[in-house]
Nucleic acid binder design. Sequence first.
DNA 1: ACTTCTTTTTTAAATTTTTAAAAAGTTTTT
DNA 2: AAAAACTTTTTAAAAATTTAAAAAAGAAGT
Lengths: 402, 402
Amino acid sequence: MGDNKIDFLISHSKTIKCLYYHTLLTSTEVSNHTGKSIPNVIKTLNEMIAEGYVEEKGLANSKGGRKPLNYSLVANTHYLLSVAMDQFSAQMVLVDMNNQFVTDVARYGFELRDLQTDKFIEYLNHFIKASGFAKNKIIGIGITMPGFVDTEKGVNYTYLKVAGQTLVEYIQQNISIPVFLDNDSTAIALAEQKFGVAAGIKNVMVLNLGWGIGLGMILNDKIFRGNNGLAGEFSHIPLFKNGKLCTCGKHGCLETEASLIAVTAIAKQGIGQGEITSLANYEDIDADIIINEAIKGDRFSVKLISEAAYHVGEGLAILIHLMNPAAIVLSGKGSVVGKLWLAPIQQAINEHCIPMLTSHTTFIISELNTRAQLIGGAALVVENFGKNLESKLNEIEDQVSV
Amino acid sequence: MGDNKIDFLISHSKTIKCLYYHTLLTSTEVSNHTGKSIPNVIKTLNEMIAEGYVEEKGLANSKGGRKPLNYSLVANTHYLLSVAMDQFSAQMVLVDMNNQFVTDVARYGFELRDLQTDKFIEYLNHFIKASGFAKNKIIGIGITMPGFVDTEKGVNYTYLKVAGQTLVEYIQQNISIPVFLDNDSTAIALAEQKFGVAAGIKNVMVLNLGWGIGLGMILNDKIFRGNNGLAGEFSHIPLFKNGKLCTCGKHGCLETEASLIAVTAIAKQGIGQGEITSLANYEDIDADIIINEAIKGDRFSVKLISEAAYHVGEGLAILIHLMNPAAIVLSGKGSVVGKLWLAPIQQAINEHCIPMLTSHTTFIISELNTRAQLIGGAALVVENFGKNLESKLNEIEDQVSV
DNA sequence: ACTTCTTTTTTAAATTTTTAAAAAGTTTTT
DNA sequence: AAAAACTTTTTAAAAATTTAAAAAAGAAGT
């Protein structure tokens, strides 16, 4: 079958992508991004204007010549549903074709490891209904979450497992909207690359500082996922001989010394041993509290974060040796205290890295913060405009007609 | 100016590359490799036949239809000079357009860290003259060597440094043939990808088992070099808290426990302490001797190799976590005892890797052995057919006409 | 041996894409 | 304020590429 409108969209996916990622572009800029000639681009753009997907948005500035027309996507032709999950909640937001949030960010709480897929689908349906937007206006859902995710297959090997079917298939069957699944850290890397501080840098390591330490890699300007989508398992590289058992079942993972979970455990131990710290004022402490007290200046809290950061730095030293990145971005929830991490990381790097290599790598703190993962989820859908979206739409159509 | 013949070659570089890498292809296969339509491919091929670069080579088999014509490059239109260096010597060979060695492999001995660039150029001139082939038939020189190499810039930051000029520029000025420089391990990875066991695999880690432990990475079907060509510094990832000073100036590098240099040092120490081993029969031992005795079955030698291999495995566990490769190839000189490495590496992987990840990665032992680096050097020149070759030829022409 | 089916090659037509040049709109200079 | 310089847009022509159909060559079955 194949909807003509959709075919049209898909055949112009390159143009859509660059307009989505840059919001406002001139024909020359689109030409540069797509690699097509200017007459070609203008023809395409005019076709898209005729179909209502693109609009002219005034004139851009020029440095001595005719002012070029600005083009952008019409914001309300379609919407992207971004679902950003972590261990304890799913955040959802609807994003328009200009990468703007058009709803409030909704939050559904749970324990991820106990979450049932059907419950999750309930949340999705609830959010869509509550959003007030027409369901058929939602062109795709981008779900980003922790765990071992194979984006191509549409499976999370760790959470939300469905028997006999992929998670993506299952959700699609129940919601009838194309679904794309990806790892949380990869989504954050995508967000940083398209809209954040990693924009325009070809080789970037994006750290997702959260409960664990996630890693999204941009190599040669492309998100790198490895052979089965499992690349970037930074949190569990075997780095320490500390004998500590990790949640993954192995010993001495980076996570056992450097994650916020480890930090919290060490903090509790310290308090028990009578450390002088404002943390002692709390009945029960968690990572957020430690971060807050560290920001306020509590010595013990700062020391805890610093020590974790140093260990992250040890891991990063290895990463730099292997990947020779132009930049390392500190992103994710934990990046709000980015500056606290920076000095100890730098120190570890200096101690463990060959100077030749460190001199080529700079550290950057994210400005997207908590929005990164949501932005990445929407971008994930846009990234799949084209062949992938087409085949998912066909799947859904087949299934409805059966 | 630009030679017409060369312009012709360069404009058909895609076709040349796939014919070089596969030796014998049908028009359909060329079409698949280049992404061009069959009429287009056949037109190109016929043009190249007219120019003498391609020839028809009989008919290929067919499963029920007209037999397709085979095409291949004419072997003797040009030659590629491959120079494979290690710490103690440079091997040189001339390779034809069918990837066949057309001279014996010449060997020039030296201490790399003491080698002067002018002496090296002497060797090159000597080899070219002694080869008996016309210099203008040599279309490019591929030099592959240890050290921090920036291929794009044409510099080795570690060896053969030239003041005020890049190494590549300097050699080109003296030899008047385009020169391409790359890291030895990267070259080996390229060889394995194009002609070896890594062919057709999209994400492969190629280990260069030699004096150090080099790493060449194939990511998404492409050689990955990092932001400044320095990626793959596997040998110096900080992995141990052993306090041992490494040649790089840092402490605890993988190399301090796992390289053949480290193995040799440990062996000498063991002999001094009266270990019962056939190694004791030698006046002075080196890595080759240990490898040979290990093959012959000397327990102590096997144990030494095994321990080194286990440490390599610890490093590989990290690599697998980060890159999720489909395969890890054991190549380089040391791969002749590939099977000796395999079991202890596997054991380390099992101990330090999340099973989910190991199950997706297979180990393969190279079949290219000592020829890998030489093949890679020639392939390096072929890889640069196109823009890069053109600009180097222009540089040389400008310089001659001045 | 003949027919039927496949696959490759060739040919011609259609389409896409680029190139080049002209026209139109701004800024800077005189 | 007018001219010159510079850009972007538009248009038209040329070139490249692909598509589709026909022809040729061989394999497999009857």
